[in-house]
Design a binder for these strands. Structure first.
Lengths: 233, 233
DNA sequence: AAAAAATATGAATAATTTATGAAAATAACG
DNA sequence: CGTTATTTTCATAAATTATTCATATTTTTT
């Protein structure tokens, strides 16, 4: 396995302008940036060693997911995937491609920088696994899998995204609208309350007592929140 | 550098229809919106102070990027750029100039509102926490939670809003009518005195001695006020 | 100190909000 | 194309909160 290099970032993006902007923003933060316009080139420079890779899902020569898998085969490097539409993130998450994070275009460059930093911080610590209540509940984003007291729990894609969204920020309260925006996309035309149904189903799968949930809690009049330490409020 | 104003948003957009829709959506979320149809006017009202600016890249009198630069020269205010169609160049231009985020038309107004909020949160440093009497009493808006001497106090939504409204301006006296307008909405048809009931319930939860409240004080003949330093009047 | 005015309080009732099971619509898959 | 899994909607039950009201208490005025 090849060593990764401190502040080197590889940007795989064929839209030159976007690549440039991303480069500019990252360099302003003291990262060194290499741009590859094609998947082929990306794979060629890989062995230079990068701390992180930003990868467009749509490239002229190869599918982003293939590149991602190719990278993952030999390198243990965090990847942020760029997708054009909100429904593509399903593919990113669902297919076990193994991206560590993803952003839907159009994205704010500041947010990208923030995520790069966050991801580097996270990765340095360990992998992409959220663990709660002393490993009683584990959310493994790279494997798209949840484990409850060590035994696997099967969540549907929407359920997983919902739980993940909440679990990433324990204690923070999300309104149904916020959750819809994040999980179903800004263009979702349906009803707020569909969130309730998913919450119910998730609770059924991860809570000991569905009537008295210890993880996924209701905040009356506002929305929902996740609590990592079931006892606390 | 000029101070920015809490919930004031400037929309610079010449297409009246779009401006109106944006305005309506933002006002529904309790923002105060000023619309400028031309760049010239935008620059003129700038000193009123805005928390955020939404700027169309294409304007009749001046290029959006010039306005953007002009704004940035004197104001440190977050900017969301609106660009027409999915013209890549425009998109990219917006970012290069130093917009914080951008959206491609046609966009969903819901998404715009969500991005506005996200950007404000990000810029503010996500400090939605009010702290009083040396952290004896803490109001945390993102967690929708009040803590009294470090232990959580559960307030109902109305109670929370009421307390928040008062606590945001310690010392300022609010009439019941003002409170009703802010908390229950201008269209509330009920009785003033419902506020009293909420005050009672809040006091029950946060005051040591409900008969001699140290935070939530009555101003006889007028209304109520919040005092951050319990000793002072 | 008594009367008047305003606020506090507890309890009853009304109104909202959430949970839930099942049906209908959609998407995914072979 | 039919079959299955998933997502969404819907109707209703259950839970929680908001409002009102009658009465007690406090504050102000005279």
């Amino acid at each position: 396995m090849i060593t990764m290099n401190g502040r080197n970032i590889l940007v795989v993006e064929d839209e030159k302008k976007i690549a440039e902007i991303v480069k500019a923003y990252l360099e302003k933060e003291d990262f060194r940036v290499t741009v590859a316009e094609r998947g082929e080139k990306a794979l060629a420079v890989l062995k230079e060693g990068f701390a992180l890779i930003i990868l467009d899902l749509m490239l002229p020569d190869m599918a982003g997911e293939d590149i991602c898998r190719a990278i993952r085969k030999d390198f243990d490097v965090p990847i942020i995937m760029l997708t054009a539409k909100s429904d593509e993130d399903d593919r990113v998450r669902g297919l076990g491609i193994g991206a560590d994070d993803y952003m839907v275009k159009p994205f704010s460059p500041r947010e990208l920088v923030a995520r790069v930093k966050a991801l580097l911080r996270r990765v340095k610590g360990s992998k992409d696994v959220l663990s709660f209540n002393g490993s009683d509940l584990v959310l493994d984003s790279t494997r798209f899998e949840v484990r409850k007291k060590a035994s696997p729990v099967v969540l549907t894609p929407t359920e997983f995204k919902l739980l993940q969204c909440l679990a990433e920020r324990p204690g923070q309260v999300f309104t149904r609208l916020q959750l819809v925006n994040v999980i179903l996309g800004y263009d979702f035309e349906g009803y707020d309350r569909t969130i309730d149904a998913h919450v119910k189903n998730i609770r059924h799968k991860i809570e000991d007592n569905q009537r008295k949930p210890s993880y996924l809690k209701t905040v009356y009049g506002i929305g929902y929140k996740f609590t990592g330490l079931p006892d606390e409020d």
